[in-house]
Design a protein around this nucleic acid. Structure first.
Lengths: 146, 146
DNA sequence: AGCGTATCTATGAGTAATTCAAAAATGCGA
DNA sequence: TCGCATTTTTGAATTACTCATAGATACGCT
């Protein structure tokens, strides 16, 4: 319940505008939305909105660390509210749906590479690939023809 | 040293062609190459090559599990020889360079999500983000102006 | 070795996702 | 409520990649 979009914007020194609030409301309501889905939601709220503006807003909010962008291979970018909680993602190979998972072993064992090659590592990103319950059910009912 | 491109192709029931051998030679010589870099290398070897053909070849070899495609956010797709060894990647935020890392804790602890949300998980992908040694050195010499 | 055909590559066009540049509109501090 | 910097819109461009089809090539067979 600590979701105060206006203050998030103010704290980042960004102006509070209709389109920005609409984008934030949508991302909060539907995490992991694509830019495409977000424009549509913004249009529902405000009447009009261009995809370019939404991209511009998404970039501004991502730069300000209000949003986080994830981009599973083969999918357009998706956006969620930025949380400093080290969670990871579960992606369905069949429908592309994304879910959150907390990091497996508490805090960070899987965030340490065995050999860092001299890199200064600042983050680890984990993506679990699989099939979501509803796609798994469908696949059982109508197996792929190959 | 056990790199026999011709046999890899034969085993997958694929024809052994100049372009395919050139692509494999390049990926073996420079793992994590982009399609763009690969066409250029193929052109050096064979005289001509179109980017579309290279994409076609890369897709065919990826489907045959001879290559693996990785796509760090913000980067075009990159290709490496497929090895069933569960290794992960280290990506430099500054220059985009990719290095391999063995999975941290042996076999698979970081491959198990704490809560699978009912998904049937078949793979886990880990990307470590950071700064590579040479970019880190440059950054120290000329700090960013902001 | 030569042939025929299925497989592969080249050519040309097209699409999806995203960015860039410049003009019009709007938020908000004074 | 005025002014101006910040935002949004408009319109065009770019990047990474796919699709369709025609032409070329590998390779099993004789």
């Amino acid at each position: 319940m600590t979701f105060a979009p206006t203050e998030l914007l103010r704290e980042a020194n960004l102006r509070v505008t209709g389109p920005r609030l609409a984008v934030l409301a949508e991302v909060e309501a539907h995490p992991h939305s694509t830019a495409e889905a977000i424009v549509e939601a913004v249009r529902d709220r405000l009447g009009t909105a261009t995809i370019q503006s939404v991209y511009h807003i998404l970039n501004a909010l991502t730069d300000a660390h209000i949003l986080r962008r994830i981009e599973p291979e083969g999918s357009p970018g998706r956006f969620e509210l930025f949380r400093d909680d080290n969670h990871h993602h579960l992606v369905c190979r069949s429908c592309g749906e994304v879910s959150d998972v907390a990091c497996t072993v508490g805090h960070a064992p899987c965030l340490t590479a065995s050999d860092d090659h001299g890199y200064v590592i600042d983050a680890a990103e984990v993506i679990f690939w699989g099939t979501c319950p509803s796609c798994a059910t469908q696949a059982t009912q109508t197996p792929p023809t190959s």
